[in-house]
Design a protein around this nucleic acid. Structure first.
Lengths: 230, 230
DNA sequence: CCCCTTCTTGTGAAGTTGACAATAACTGAG
DNA sequence: CTCAGTTATTGTCAACTTCACAAGAAGGGG
């Protein structure tokens, strides 16, 4: 599953299936091992490249889980190793790719079921998005959604888009800078669209965030309605 | 990989290989799908039962990751779906099991390389133990190491054994009880070995812990040696 | 020069964590 | 019954962290 940020919202790449089963229905991009010697991670990189023509050394790519239910593909037993790829915002046309019938759909549309996916791909997408949401808290994964150089405001937009929440700007600045090794200042500024120039940062060496950036709990106010205690 | 607690320490179940390759060397228990229709999770349960004769509805069992490097098995391409099983302390002899050549080895011995495992099983074991350590922080996984009814002191021993640290008893009591839905009191006590009876608890409905129980950082004191600041 | 836009920063109150030791409840021996 | 031994359980204060909250800084354009 390939995730990116477009217009401040989380999007998933889907391809329209050209063959049965589920012909014409959107599905997560994927494919089979080319030969017996192909490494699984290499195959994931290859598929990623075929779908997005992305310089694959730039994108984050990790293994998610295995989906192997015997009835998940009507053609027979297919065991899929789901991977999660994350890339900075990509252009809409996806020009020059094999799959011209590929498109970005908002993550919300997949989660809500508004867009139906082939096979058990909705389940996979749900798991993957949940994985990304959780991992934003404890890892530097958010930088994978950004270009090489980014501003703190952009990084905040990543968190807000993936979590679907609004964050306090001042506290966000303090926290990301407190997590040493998360982001490191480049030194130069970026001329913005008519405002104060923003400092640029690059992803730091640390992949685990400490202290973590905890997702605000929507149930914080309704947590203890009438103060029940032992 | 099957983990348990024995004598207050984390142990891994290994079986001595009866055939080449790696004949006579310890390996993680495992096997192949029986037939084309067998579900992966069912197969994991089956293997677990064959090795430990455990009532498999009692043990925690979850998927870990896929290991599919083309050269990880000299016989040819083998793709393994690693699973993590966790059970309360089991008797030593492992009587009545298929694998009479099975034994518990301390996790430390595997991590340090003191005990060498066949294939890439040391890598798998390392990943699995690390997974368990992390998951103790944010989930109720620790209760899987305990019997149905357990005391807070026993639960603390789980954390200390898996993390390899000592924890403050009073703070531990406060934290586990603050995480609503983690453990729920049974009401009865257990007559202990000559001390004050301990209250018994069962695992609560919540699987995610909030607030989490953070692993103490050994580097807390040496974090900022000479206070370097911007 | 002024207004607009965007980025950046500080403070005080409230809550949380971590270090620390005394007491409660039972068992078994005398 | 009493006492010693053993294990389980609980409270407090200081240090730290988090949250809520608004004003100023730096550039662009008219």
């Amino acid at each position: 599953m390939i995730l990116t940020l477009r217009e401040g919202r989380l999007h998933v790449l889907v391809v329209e299936r050209g063959e049965a089963p589920f012909r014409g229905m959107p599905a997560l991009p994927g494919g089979f091992l080319n030969h017996d010697r192909e490494e699984i991670l290499d195959a994931a990189h290859r598929e990623l490249n075929e779908e997005t023509a992305l310089a694959s050394n730039w994108v984050h790519l990790e293994q998610l889980a295995v989906y192997g239910d015997s009835d998940r593909d009507p053609r027979g037993r297919v065991i899929s190793v789901a991977h999660l790829a994350i890339a900075p915002g990509l252009p809409d046309p996806l020009a020059g790719t094999d799959a011209t019938d590929a498109s970005w759909v908002p993550a919300e549309a997949v989660l809500s079921g508004e867009v139906e996916l082939a096979f058990d791909h909705r389940r996979i997408a749900t798991d993957g998005i949940e994985h990304a949401r959780t991992k934003l808290e404890f890892s530097s994964l958010a930088t994978a959604f950004c270009e090489e150089e980014f501003t703190i405001a952009e990084l905040q937009q990543v968190y807000e888009a993936v979590w679907g929440t609004k964050l306090d700007t001042r506290n966000f600045y303090r926290k990301v800078q407190a997590a040493k090794g998360f982001i490191i200042p480049v030194g130069t500024d970026r001329r913005s669209t008519g405002g104060r120039p923003a400092r640029l940062y690059r992803a730091g060496p640390k992949t685990v965030l400490f202290p973590p950036l905890i997702q605000p709990t929507p149930s914080a106010t309704e947590e203890n309605p009438n103060g029940e205690e032992e």
